[in-house]
């Protein structure tokens, strides 16, 4: 079966086939899930190399539990977001404690004063601002506004109630707004 034909297969169906030894299902599921896991890990960690390690670790956990996977019990993506976040939080906590809530210094050269933010530059600025948020707020904002998940799923992934998730998202957005305003001044952007 061509990989394109597996696009409509559910994650559950592909996991069952992986556990039966189907290497094409393993390939299709990797292509489907790995980019999402990596993007999530990068946004939580702010470090591409560490995010690659986390992606590898999270997917390996999925392959190992594939034979025991119970279809319909949990969405594979929900399970993976949770595993990814836990791996990231472990790594963040192993870093020096003072670094947890520190905003990293902007790495790019300061652009010309008159330059308006391009889409890519705006995305980079957002990543910098996200890195300054406390980890739970960052996780909630990333899941809701960058992964595009409904609040109920954010709550499920974070193992909290919907109201607590809403509160984390709102506080995160407030902090982001302040941080981005600061960054715009700092970097000389005019929007």
């Amino acid at each position: 079966m061509a990989l394109d034909n597996m696009g409509e297969d559910s994650d559950d169906a592909l996991i069952a086939r992986v556990s039966a030894g189907d290497t094409r299902a393993a390939q299709a599921l990797t292509l489907r899930l790995a980019p999402r896991v990596y993007a999530h890990a990068t946004r939580l960690l702010g470090d591409a190399a560490e995010a690659e390690d986390v992606t590898q670790e999270a997917l390996l956990k999925l392959w190992r539990i594939a034979p025991d996977w119970q279809p319909g019990r949990a969405q594979a993506s929900t399970w993976l977001y949770r595993v990814t976040a836990n791996l990231c939080i472990d790594r963040l906590r192993r870093r020096r404690p003072a670094a947890l809530d520190e905003a990293p210094e902007p790495q790019d050269a300061t652009p010309p004063v008159t330059e308006r933010l391009t889409e890519a530059a705006r995305a980079r600025a957002l990543d910098q601002a996200l890195a300054a948020l406390p980890e739970r707020q960052r996780q909630a904002v990333v899941l809701k506004h960058l992964e595009g998940l409904p609040t109920e799923r954010v709550a499920e992934i974070m193992d909290i109630g919907p109201r607590a998730a809403e509160s984390l998202i709102a506080r995160g957005k407030r902090a982001l707004t302040a941080r981005l305003a600061g960054l715009r001044k700092e970097l000389g952007y005019d929007d």
């Binding site: 290497t23 393993a26 990797t30 390996l60």
Partner: peptide, 10 residues
């Protein structure tokens, strides 16, 4: 990652 996944499936 794909090669690793296929190895696990095998």
């Amino acid at each position: 990652l794909t090669a690793e996944a296929q190895g696990q499936a095998r």
